[in-house]
Amino acid sequence: MEFKTFVFYFLSAVLLYAAARVVTLRNPVHAALHLVLAFFSASGIWMLLQAEFLAIVLVLVYVGSVTVLFLFVVMMLDIDANRMREGFRKNMPLGLGVASLMIAEMGFVFYSRFSGHVESAARQAGPEYSNVKEIGRLLFTEYAYPFELASVVLLTGVVAAVALTLRGKQKNKSVDPSEQVFVKAGERIRILHMPPEKME
């Protein structure tokens, strides 16, 4: 077995283990940390496929920001893990049955297709080939249209988040400095004219 193949199987095993633990662990924080492990192994596999830019982006975006966000949410929300697991045992036989059937069918299709294909069919690129440059070129030329549309998807996210969470203007007690400066004494103090009281 070639070293590369060994690395692939090792990373895949770690990935499968971590992914399974994400679903089965009781503690949501541990589950999120296993998710980090899963992302790392996936990025290793991409590195093997010479997609180094995507591998780095996966680590930066998913490990660096998405999982951190997950952890924040998990820690801030009070999730009752036991309530979420209600019906887990009851529905498990059916779920397992369907899942194993699907896996068997998928495996059947793929095994007959790809058994024997160990190495990927993709050409090996030379050392001067730059992933980043090539992706950048494609994104801004051929894929410019879907790329711009993706920005509209982000706009949707912003608008939807504001629409769903903003509850009108807060009534705060801040003051406007210019109004403070131009204030006159008469507006601050009410001068009352009272007839002087006579001494008896």
Binding site: Y145, P146, L149, V152, V153, T156, G157, V159, A160
Partner: peptide
């Protein structure tokens, strides 16, 4: 494009 369009169609509707 099909996929991005479909997301662009569904996401605002969820909101």
């Amino acid at each position: 494009t099909l996929y991005v369009g479909l997301e662009l169609l569904s996401l605002p509707i969820y909101a």
